[in-house]
């Protein structure tokens, strides 16, 4: 499913002159099926408000632009938001906060039962099992456990399973690695990449971590004051260090090194992932005939 937003605008407290905030201000953006897409920007730049539109948690207002996701026209009054939400999964920051059921099984099945009440118990079991396996948990081991007795990292996986259980084609994650320790974080990113190979065709992450974006995203946009300030591949976005700093963001380490080396006359044309950066650096040094 392709996501097409045109001139999307959202204003908080629109009726009040003094409190009105244009949280999203005329955003035009296309996210293609299959992308691993990054949305970045400082706190309060409007990125959270924007992504909440994607599954209708915030409705597109009248004369506030248009938003289409695959077949769904979110501007249409008759848009089937339930069907949309089963196709566009949303994982909030610290998603483990939404766990509530007595067992892991029941919690994961919650969304499934809401979206597909007609599903047979066997089918439900099958889907819950698939979801838990996909997030790297042992179904037999955890299904009867209380979600609250799991470790932090496991809780987060259960929460993700509860979202992907409906087989969404688009998965939106807000700050997915927040609060995880380094290895937990690395494993989690790996999990997202695995999910990207399944029915989850498009992954959209909202993050403050520029290294995470440059390492994993095919494309990204930078939000600033509700508008899109920069967009393109990580390489394109992070090429203008001054602009990036103005937008309140850090450079990924690879971009910083690329800039510093450029000042010394060493041009490294990498896509800013660590591996590619190292390869291109090796080549550049070789070309210069430098001693290795």
């Amino acid at each position: 499913m392709q996501i097409v937003a045109k001139d999307l605008t959202y204003i908080y407290s629109e009726k009040s002159k003094s409190l009105a905030v244009r949280a999203v201000d005329g955003v035009t953006l296309t996210i293609d099926e299959g992308e691993f897409f990054g949305i970045v920007g400082r706190t309060g730049s409007g990125k959270s408000t924007f992504v909440q539109h994607l599954n209708g948690l915030i409705k597109v207002g009248k004369d506030k632009g248009s938003l289409k996701i695959g077949e769904f026209d979110l501007t249409d009054k008759d848009c089937d938001f339930m069907a949309l939400r089963s196709k566009v999964g949303m994982v909030f920051q610290y998603p483990e906060a939404q766990l509530f059921a007595e067992t892991v099984f029941d919690d994961v099945a919650f969304g499934l039962k809401n979206f597909y009440p007609e599903l047979s118990p066997e089918e439900t079991t099958e889907r819950v099992k698939t979801a838990l396996t996909l997030v790297g948990l042992n179904y037999e081991e955890v299904k009867e456990k209380s979600p609250f007795e799991l470790s932090g990292g496991q809780k987060r996986r259960v929460a993700i399973a509860g979202v992907i259980v409906t087989r969404p084609e688009v998965l939106v994650l807000d700050e997915p690695a927040a609060g995880l320790d380094p290895v937990g974080k690395r494993d989690f990113i790996r999990l997202l990449k695995e999910l990207h190979k399944t029915f989850v065709k498009t992954i959209i992450i909202v993050s403050h971590d520029m290294n995470l974006v440059s390492e994993n995203c095919s494309r990204a946009v930078v939000f600033d004051k509700g508008k899109i300030a920069l967009s393109g591949t990580p390489k394109e976005i992070f090429s203008d260090a001054k602009k990036v700093a103005e937008l309140g963001l850090d450079l990924p380490v690879t971009a910083k090194l690329t800039n510093d080396l450029k000042d010394k006359g060493i041009i490294i044309d990498s896509d800013l992932t660590t591996d590619d950066f190292i390869q291109k650096y090796l080549r550049a040094v070789k070309d210069k005939g430098g001693a290795l």
Partner: peptide
């Protein structure tokens, strides 16, 4: 604020 967040998260999971 927290209530608002949890309501949204459950809505996203199809809660009505």
């Amino acid at each position: 604020e927290e209530t608002d967040r949890i309501i949204k998260a459950q809505k996203a999971r199809g809660a009505n």
